[in-house]
Each structure stands twice: as structure tokens, then as C-alpha cells.
């Protein structure tokens, strides 16, 4: 999360806004942004526009979401695909549509919060836990759980920011800022710093 927060703080700071990032359950973030309770959804894969008509996509990619599979460090599991999950007991968190659509495993555990995922690995109640790269690494570090990241990702999705339509005037400004940050190296700089920190952490 550190990466996203830094990118957004940097971007909005240059156009004169303060940014507060709140962590909410996936769908709650959409609901709150759509109802105008919050000003937008910071990090979302495209394709929800029809269900949440009040949200406007900022058409410049913020980052990439990599849907990863994690296992215990000692598990003899090599590279996995959606079909390959069929032979394992799999756990993921409630509300992750991509998993709901694609996972056809022998045994699936759906937990209410991602914090319950890695303990399942520890207690050997699940062979594989599905989570995106950034959160997985963050949670493992936070919970002090040793995990193995199974490369490559099951899927990669470009992620965008959505703003409530009351802020449509900001959309082009944010796009401009983001492109500028990518051109002048600010974006990559933030990315490198964050990766360095996580890589270190994950080892």
C-alpha cells in the first residue's frame, strides 16, 4: 500500500489536493465511492462501470494487480495455472470476483478477511492461498508468516483510479500528472523504493 499512497499523494499534491487513503472491503469501497460518501476508489480493475454508474475512470493506469498463488515454503508445488488449482485445497477471501469465476478446486475455503488466509497455510488447512502480490507480501510480513510466492502470476490486470462524478473536472488533471510522473521518472522511483522494501521483507 505504501506504493499507491505515495503515488497518489505525489500526484494530488502537485495539483493542490490532500489525499487520504482508507482501507475498506473491496465492494464497500465501490459502494461508498459510488454513493459519494467517499470521493473515489483508488485502485480498481476495470469492468464495474455498469454496476456503479456514478464512478468515472481516470484513464491512466495506476499500477498492475498480479493475482498470485502462495504456498507454504516447504510445499512441493511448482508453477500453477487456473486448471492446476483443481488438485489442491485452495483458500481466498470473500468478494474476489476473479477467483469466484475461475477457481474450480477440489476443496475451497472462502474467508471473510484476507487476514485469515495465511494462518490457513500455517495450520495446513489449505495448500494454496490466492491473493494479489502486494497485499500478500504485506500480510505475510505483518503476520510473520513464511510463504512461497508461486511465479508467474495466475493473472495480471491493469488497475485504475475511479472518481465520483462530482469530481469529473479533476480527471484530466490527474491523468496529466500521472503521465508526467511516469515521464520524469517519479513513478518508477517510487516503485523501485517500494519493491526494494518488500523484496527485502519477503526474504
Amino acid at each position: 500500500m505504501g506504493f499507491l499512497q505515495r503515488v497518489l499523494e505525489s500526484a494530488f499534491d502537485s495539483i493542490g489536493y490532500d489525499v487520504e487513503i482508507i482501507v475498506l472491503p473491496g465492494e464497500r469501497a465501490l459502494l461508498n465511492a459510488n454513493s459519494g460518501l467517499d470521493d473515489g476508489d483508488a485502485f480498481r480493475a476495470p469492468g464495474f462501470e455498469d454496476a456503479y454508474p456514478n464512478l468515472i475512470r481516470v484513464p491512466e493506469k495506476i499500477g498492475v494487480m498480479e493475482f498470485m498463488a502462495y504456498s507454504s515454503p516447504g510445499a512441493k508445488i511448482g508453477r500453477v495455472t487456473w486448471k492446476g488449482l483443481r488438485d489442491y485445497t485452495v483458500a481466498y477471501a470473500n468478494g474476489w470476483k476473479i477467483y469466484e469465476r475461475n477457481v474450480q478446486a477440489e476443496e475451497v475455503t472462502v474467508v471473510r478477511n484476507i487476514k485469515y488466509l495465511f494462518p490457513l497455510l500455517e495450520q495446513e488447512r489449505a495448500d494454496i492461498v490466492l491473493l494479489d502480490r502486494w497485499q500478500g507480501l504485506y500480510m505475510a510480513k505483518k503476520q510473520g508468516v513464511k510463504v512461497k510466492l508461486l511465479e508467474p502470476p495466475l493473472a495480471k490486470v491493469d488497475m485504475y483510479m475511479y472518481l465520483h462524478k462530482k469530481h469529473d473536472a479533476l480527471v484530466s488533471k490527474v491523468v496529466t500528472v500521472l503521465r508526467k510522473m511516469k515521464q520524469d521518472g517519479t513513478y518508477d522511483e517510487i516503485m523501485s523504493a517500494e519493491l526494494e522494501q518488500h523484496n527485502y521483507m519477503s526474504n
Partner: peptide, 8 residues
């Protein structure tokens, strides 16, 4: 409802 936990 807050977490939109359909199953729950």
C-alpha cells in the same frame, strides 16, 4: 452489508 458479504 458493510463488507457486502453476500454469503454471510
Amino acid at each position: 452489508v458493510w463488507v457486502a458479504d453476500s454469503q454471510q
